[in-house]
């Protein structure tokens, strides 16, 4: 008795995850639709995509995206439909514009400054090590090296 119940319990997330069923006349359209709604952001629950969101508006916007894709228009058109009305905010992948330059370039900038920083550190340390040795110490070091190799 308990076993089927447990099985049902495991199936629960599948049921909950399924948004409304959509009929497409070809599977390529379905794939495009599903990719799109996974990439577009819901404005009500802002941490969820259109696909994930249970909000009423998300459902309406899925309807709009569905209509556009099912009628054979392009993905760009669906994206334009949403950005015309809600701005770039609906895109999880923001476009490269003058205002998003820092956003896109930032990681590269941080990486570069990190490399410069480490480079400087390494250079300083190695030069410090060389200066610190006196003539006598230098000779001792050479001797030790020879002993080790010998």
């Amino acid at each position: 008795m308990i076993r089927p119940l447990i099985l049902l319990f495991w199936l629960l997330p599948l049921i909950a995850a399924a948004v409304e069923v959509r009929e497409f006349d070809d599977t390529a359209k379905q794939e495009r639709y599903e990719r799109l709604i996974g990439e577009l952001r819901c404005l009500v629950c802002q941490n969820q995509s259109l696909a994930d969101s249970d909000a009423d508006l998300a459902k309406d916007l899925r309807d709009e995206v569905y209509d556009i894709i099912q009628s054979g228009r392009s993905e760009e058109e669906a994206i334009r439909f949403l950005t015309d009305r809600y701005g770039d905010f609906v895109l999880y992948r923001p476009p490269l514009k003058s205002v998003t330059l820092l956003l896109w370039g930032g990681p590269l900038l941080i990486l570069l400054s990190g490399i410069v920083f480490i480079w400087n550190q390494v250079k300083r340390r190695s030069s410090v090590a060389r200066i610190d040795l006196t003539e006598e110490e230098q000779q001792r070091l050479e001797r030790l090296k020879r002993n080790l190799e010998g």
Partner: peptide, 13 residues
């Protein structure tokens, strides 16, 4: 009723 005009005006809240 169906919220279409709302969507066209970018209504979300």
């Amino acid at each position: 009723a169906d919220g279409r005009v709302g969507i066209n005006w970018g209504v979300y809240g």
